[in-house]
């Protein structure tokens, strides 16, 4: 009572600053979210939008040299329009690289996710022993840096230093050349599968653990076998994490770089532009043409975006259809 009275008295006295009018309160309330957003937006602009913008800008530029190109002022940066892009589109090496990565992805993604799902389901069964140890053992390769893993496997693939070949030789068995032709794809895929299965398994396993126990109880009361539970209950219920892991795997596949780059010195069959990202690296840091590299990088980013969103869309629409049913 007293407080209302005193407040009123302020108003009566006519001191606008003492008693904020409704409009200023509204204004302040409206600006508050922007103030909260400010740090994130500044960081986003500085470390995300700006570098990307610069890369895109670079992709429309090119170096221009006059005459012999020696001495001061002989090299200038000029506008290139879509020149770098048309060139990238006509570059057969980039296309071949994309096709090679497609072949690699067709091996890696199904094998890796299939194994991850299988291991997760096996670990989730009731009568499994040594579960924590097995889980850790399968996950461990993920903790090993990609370059180290590729080096290790590379040494195992090289006939002259590999213990496997020594054994094969002693047993008089055929010794396939894993660093050439078709087997090369298997060799590179193997490194990715070895390193990535554990991570994907953990993602799937975590979502398996979050399925309420009542569901299983109900299934058991209905007489479902463990296999039926796995196929008809577990897999459909972890579908969202399968979509997620698939999504991550596609992106990782498009960006494959470590494994082929590390294996390259070991064999003549891997060239410097084996994958699109290797071509970007080659152009930027060996050929010294950052403009072409920027255009290629932009194209790869666009392709990744299109593919990922197309996949997410397809996955979502399927979910909706199922819900509608």
């Amino acid at each position: 009572m007293t407080s209302t009275a005193s407040r009123k008295s302020y108003g009566v006295k006519g001191a606008p600053y003492a008693h904020p009018s409704p409009t200023t309160t509204l204004k302040r309330a409206r600006s508050a979210p922007y103030i909260f957003l400010l740090p994130a937006s500044v960081l986003f602009l500085l470390f995300f939008a700006l570098p990307i913008g610069y890369a895109v800008w670079l992709s429309f530029r090119k170096a221009h040299v006059s005459g012999l190109g020696l001495g001061a002022g002989a090299r200038k940066e000029v506008w290139a329009g879509f020149g770098n892009y048309t060139e990238a589109f006509h570059d057969s090496e980039l296309l071949h690289g994309a096709l090679r990565v497609l072949g690699y992805g067709c091996i890696v993604v199904p094998v890796m996710l299939g194994l991850a799902l299988l291991f997760a389901l096996m670990l989730d069964t009731e009568r499994v022993r040594l579960a924590p140890f097995t889980r850790l053992a399968i996950f461990l390769p993920y903790a090993i840096p990609g370059v180290v893993a590729a080096l290790m496997w590379g040494f195992l693939y090289l006939p002259d230093v590999s213990p496997f070949y020594y054994v094969l030789d002693k047993l008089n068995l055929p010794q396939p050349n894993l660093l050439d032709g078709g087997p090369l794809y298997l060799a590179i895929s193997n490194i990715a599968v070895w390193g990535g299965t554990g991570f994907n398994m953990i993602v799937i396993y975590t979502s398996l653990r979050s399925i309420p126990a009542e569901v299983y109880e109900a299934a058991k009361l209905d007489g479902a076998t463990p296999l039926q539970i796995a196929l008809k209950i577990k897999i459909p219920m972890v579908a969202p994490s399968l979509v997620l892991t698939f999504f991550f795997s596609i992106i990782a596949t498009l960006q494959v770089f470590n494994e082929p780059t590390t294996l390259k010195p070991l064999t003549n069959s891997l060239n410097t532009s084996w994958s699109p990202l290797m071509k970007v690296y080659q152009d930027a840091f060996h050929r010294g043409d950052i403009y072409s590299a920027a255009a290629e990088a932009t194209l790869i980013a666009l392709a990744t975006l299109v593919l990922s969103f197309a996949f997410l869309r397809a996955a979502n629409s399927r979910n909706k259809q199922e819900e509608a049913r």
Partner: peptide, 20 residues
Amino acid sequence: GPNVNVAYATFNDAFGAAAK
């Protein structure tokens, strides 16, 4: 010349493939 890097990079790929 001014683009030895390009010649060298092409050498690695072209001669690597030819040697193989």
